[in-house]
Amino acid sequence: MKRRTAVRNMGLALGSVISLPAWANAWSPSSLIPADLLALDEEALLAEICETILPETNTPGSKSLKVHQFVHRMIQDCLPEKAQDTFKKGLAYTDQQANKKNGQGFVNAKPSERKALLVEMSKAEESKDFVKLVKDLTVRGYRISEHYQLNVLKYKMAPGFFHGSVPVE
C-alpha cells in the first residue's frame, strides 16, 4: 500500500499549499485505486526494475524518489492504451526470465543479476520495447524529481533574468 499512501501524501502536500484545480477534483487519489493497473507484487517488481535502471548511489535512486510510481501513473493514465499491454506482458516476462536465469524472481535476484538481465532484454526483439518504455519513463520521472531538479539542474522557479549570450557552462 506504500504507493497509495505516497500518492495520498502528495495530494495532501499540494492541498496544504493550494487547492487543486477543478479538473483535478475528479481524480482524487482514492479514485485511482479501483482503476489500478498493477497488483501489489507487480508494483514491487516495477520498483526494482526502475531501481535497476537508476539505482541508489551516493545520491537517491528511483525507489527512494518514487519514480516507479510516476512510471506506473503515466502508463495507466496518459500513454496510449497499447503501452499498457507492453507493460503488463513485459513485467511478467521479466520475472519469468529471472526465474529461468537465476532460479528466483527478479525482486529476489542480486543487483548484478538484475542489471545483466535488463541489458540482455534491452537487446532482445521480444523485450526491447518494454525495456525502452520503462527506461524512458524512469529517466523522465527522475528528471522531474525534486532531487534532480534542485541538485543537478539547479532549478529556479523565478530566475529573474534572461541573458541572450553567455559562455557555455
Binding site: 502528495m10 502536500a13 499540494l14 499549499v17 493550494i18 487547492s19 487543486l20 484545480p21 479538473w23 483535478a24 481524480w27 510516476f70 501513473r73 503515466m74 493514465d77 496518459c78 500513454l79 496510449p80 492504451e81 523522465r140 520521472g141 522531474i144 524529481s145 525534486e146 531538479q149 532549478y155 522557479m157
Partner: peptide, 21 residues
C-alpha cells in the same frame, strides 16, 4: 491561480494531460 506555485515535481503527470481527458 491554483498551479502557479507548483514545482515540476508537484505535477502528477509531468504536465501531460490524461488520455481520457
Amino acid at each position: 491561480y491554483p498551479t502557479a506555485m507548483m514545482d515540476p515535481w508537484d505535477f502528477k503527470y509531468d504536465k501531460q494531460m490524461p488520455r481520457d481527458y
